[in-house]
Computed example of a mutant assay.
Amino acid sequence: MPKSKRNKQVTLSKTKKKGREHKEAVVNTMKQAIENHNSVYVFSFENMRNLKFKEFREKLKSTSRFFLGSNKVMQVCLGRSADDEIRPGLHKVSKLLRGDAGLLCTNLPKEEVERLFNEYEEYDFARTGSSVTEKVELKEGPLEQFTHEMEPFLRKQGMPVRLNKGVVELISDFVVCEEGKPLSPEAARILRLLGIQMATFRLCLICRWSPDDFELYIEGPDDSDIESA
Rank of each mutant, 00 (worst) to 15 (best):
G89M: 03
G79K: 04
N28C: 13
R57V: 07
T147Q: 01
L183N: 07
P182Q: 15
R57P: 00
K54I: 02
E35S: 15
L68N: 10
V27Y: 11
C77A: 15
E149Q: 14
V76Y: 11
T106G: 09
L68A: 10
L154E: 04
N164S: 13
R20K: 12
D100K: 15
R98L: 08
P182I: 15
L51Q: 03
L205H: 03
V161I: 00
G19Y: 07
F43Y: 02
L12H: 13
L103H: 05
K92M: 05
R202L: 06
F56Y: 01
D212R: 05
T133M: 10
L12I: 05
N36A: 04
N107C: 03
D213S: 10
R208I: 00
E178A: 06
K59R: 15
E46A: 12
S44T: 09
E137C: 10
P152N: 02
Q145E: 15
G195H: 04
S4A: 14
K14Y: 09
K95E: 13
K52P: 12
D213T: 08
K3A: 15
L163R: 09
K14N: 10
I226L: 09
F153N: 09
E179A: 14
D173M: 02
R127G: 15
R155S: 11
R6A: 08
M159Y: 06
V10K: 15
A82V: 11
I86K: 12
S210R: 02
K95G: 13
T29M: 05
N50A: 11
R57N: 12
E119A: 08
S44V: 06
D212T: 14
E144C: 07
P160H: 08
L163M: 05
R6N: 10
F53Y: 05
S64K: 04
F146P: 07
F117I: 04
N164D: 15
G220D: 12
I34V: 10
R202N: 09
G220C: 12
L163F: 01
N71F: 14
F43W: 00
N7E: 04
K5P: 12
K139N: 11
R208H: 01
S94W: 05
I226K: 14
E119I: 01
S62Y: 00
N47I: 07
S184P: 11
R65F: 01
N7W: 00
Q157D: 09
S130N: 10
L97H: 11
E114D: 08
K16T: 14
E122Y: 02
S64P: 01
N47D: 09
E227P: 11
K92L: 03
R162I: 04
L96N: 11
E114F: 03
V175R: 13
A187N: 06
K156H: 08
S94R: 13
R208P: 00
T11R: 14
G158I: 05
T11E: 07
G99E: 10
V10C: 02
A25I: 08
E121C: 08
V27L: 14
E119N: 09
T15F: 04
G220L: 06
K54C: 11
R65C: 04
D223W: 11
V136P: 06
Q32M: 04
K110S: 06
D225L: 14
I206V: 13
